[in-house]
């Protein structure tokens, strides 16, 4: 069953970080409803190339929801209108014939636009480098079952670890805050015995880096959780607050 639709796309075009951007409107006909959103973007780019125009630049890599590269703000939602999926997992069957689709880059001080829909998310890498790891002295790997971990803790850590670092939380937040990301990265380690050891140092260093890079102050609106493709819970944010406050109180 191959159904096709015709859509109008309003796409943000911006030549470079300093350049002034603007929306361009394109008509795209014969889009299969079986195609993914990114395949639709490929189709748009083929059309643009055949018209000898510059294709639209956008980030993507795995196209299966695990790498966190795809980052489109579609019709007012990071990763589009569907829930709990990334842009690459969004299907064109979610749209109707004749729809106008507005596609914007993540807009946030912490994520400057590189070109068109591609933004620079290296700020997240810097936050991870500040402390989002466990220091290990390499040697023989210990037996995995030597340290007992409760099922509850293991599940919470696993849920936090599902964060793919896409940045949708920052894009969705009216305060441009990165707290959901940072709290997930702090929680996935702080909940486990191996990570607990460095928990205080980690929370302080990562929050300091996050503030330094110009992300906003969280006011618990919850937009991040609602838009996160991996359903990371804001209860991680409260955990980060506690880790951070306890670490500061101990100083």
């Amino acid at each position: 069953m191959d159904k096709t639709i015709n859509v109008t796309l309003k796409v943000w075009r911006q030549r470079g970080p300093k350049a002034k951007g603007a929306f361009e409107t394109y008509k795209l006909n014969g889009v299969s409803t079986d195609s993914s959103f990114l395949e639709m973007m490929d189709q748009l780019n083929e059309q643009l190339i055949s018209e000898r125009k510059e294709p639209v630049v956008f980030d993507h890599d795995c196209r299966e929801g695990i790498c966190g590269m795809c980052s489109l703000y579609i019709n007012g939602h990071p990763h589009g209108p569907d829930e709990d999926i990334t842009t690459c997992q969004l299907h064109m069957r979610k749209f109707k014939d004749g729809d106008t689709i507005t596609i914007e880059p993540w807009r946030s001080h912490g994520f400057p636009v590189i070109r068109d829909l591609m933004v620079d998310r290296s700020a997240f890498d810097k936050i991870i480098q500040a402390g989002g790891y466990v220091s290990v002295n390499t040697g023989g790997a210990p037996d995995a079952n030597a340290i007992p971990i409760s099922k509850e803790k293991a599940d919470l850590a696993m849920d936090a670890a599902s964060c793919i670092g896409c940045g949708a939380c920052v894009a969705a937040c009216k305060n441009g805050s990165a707290m959901l990301f940072v709290s997930a990265k702090v929680s996935q380690l702080a909940l486990l015995p191996q990570g607990k050891v460095e928990a205080a140092r980690r929370a302080k260093a990562m929050v300091a880096k996050m503030d330094e890079l110009g992300f906003g102050n969280c006011t618990n609106t919850g937009a991040c959780e609602a838009e996160c493709p991996k359903n990371v819970s804001i209860s991680n944010i409260a955990r980060l607050n506690r880790e951070f406050l306890c670490a500061k109180l101990k100083d």
Binding site: F23, E104, R107, H109, G176, G214, G216
Partner: peptide, 9 residues
């Protein structure tokens, strides 16, 4: 922190 450009939608 929100950046200089606002979302259109």
């Amino acid at each position: 922190a929100r950046g200089s450009e606002r979302y259109a939608v």
